[in-house]
Design a protein around this nucleic acid. Structure first.
Lengths: 180, 180
DNA sequence: ACCTGAACACCGTTCAAGT
DNA sequence: ACCTGAACACCGTTCAAGT
């Protein structure tokens, strides 16, 4: 929680930077995200960005986190695990370029690696919770892992939305049993 | 096939460049591969590389293709589809950094995208052939696709070799039926 | 045909100097 | 505390000039 006016101002500026960063990431991908492009969009000098972020990769990680959080806001109130999983995959699929860039930069930046690990743990946890009522306890871990890896695979490839849905549904039916 | 001495020399030089490029990719990843680093290793000026490759991404694509071809040489003479698939995944897992860089750069370079599509089609085809004796015709396409996506997922993530093998085996058992 | 060396425009990062 | 403007080392790419 912010304690004073100064910290509020700072958070607002960080928020401005991340808004611009997330927008550039969505439209132009990692290659389009430069410290210069963000600074220019905000009308400040390149060096100003370094007052709020230690490096380009920290700026990238935070912007990517923001874009992903935006995409997963407002999940639907649906009952079956399959449909909730399918909803999340649809939303994440739009961010496929960001996802591949995260994987790539995680090799070189601890900040990016940490964000990616956090995102993956969060998603795997939610996936387990969604599956728990539908899978016997002994199968929960392997089933959740295999579905998670499948989603990871669909997000790392270019694929037609139709094929993505078909393959995901096939896997879910195989592992969870066909719906009644 | 080369027609004269000149073309032989040229092919040898291209081969030298790719040997260095593949080596840098394996040891330092995409970020370590620069036109400068390849040229320096060969003792030539930066510009010399452009006599053989039109851009850094074409150099990258060719080097990555070489590294992958090297890794998949000498497949084992084994009978079951599962063990052949597992062998290929083990080999490709070592090249995970190259794989993620290919996905990322395919967004920006037609040459990289073309190589990636070629590799993926080749692997999917081999996967189908390996599976054909073990799966009824109607299930061949979806089963092959789901396994392919799973492999793609394991290659895009950092994962302990033990977990990678366990999850792959679980999926194969689920889709193909447990081994006798 | 092949290669060099310099030039260009662009990076990420740092930092003295200002307010 | 916050920002500018210049500097530095590094890119990818191009190209006149050499052999």
């Amino acid at each position: 929680v912010p304690r004073n006016r100064q910290e509020v101002d700072r958070n607002e500026k960080v928020d401005d930077i991340l808004r611009v960063g997330a927008h550039i990431l969505r439209s132009e991908g990692y290659a389009g995200l430069s410290v210069q492009s963000v600074a220019a969009e905000l009308g400040v000098a390149r060096g100003a960005i370094y007052w709020y972020f230690r490096s380009k990769d920290e700026l990238f990680a935070a912007s990517a986190g923001r874009a992903i959080a935006d995409a997963l806001r407002h999940p639907p109130h649906t009952r079956t695990a399959s449909s909730r999983i399918e909803w999340a995959v649809e939303r994440l699929a739009d961010l496929q370029p960001i996802h591949t860039a995260l994987q790539e930069r995680a090799r070189y930046s601890l900040a990016v690696a940490a964000l990616l690990a956090e995102i993956q743990e969060g998603l795997l946890g939610q996936l387990r919770n969604a599956l728990r009522p539908h899978v016997v306890a002994a199968r929960l871990d392997p089933v959740a892992s295999v579905i998670f890896i499948h989603v990871q695979g669909t997000l790392s490839m270019q694929m037609a939305p139709r094929d993505r849905r078909r393959h995901l549904r096939f896997l879910l039916d195989e592992l969870l049993g066909a719906p009644p």
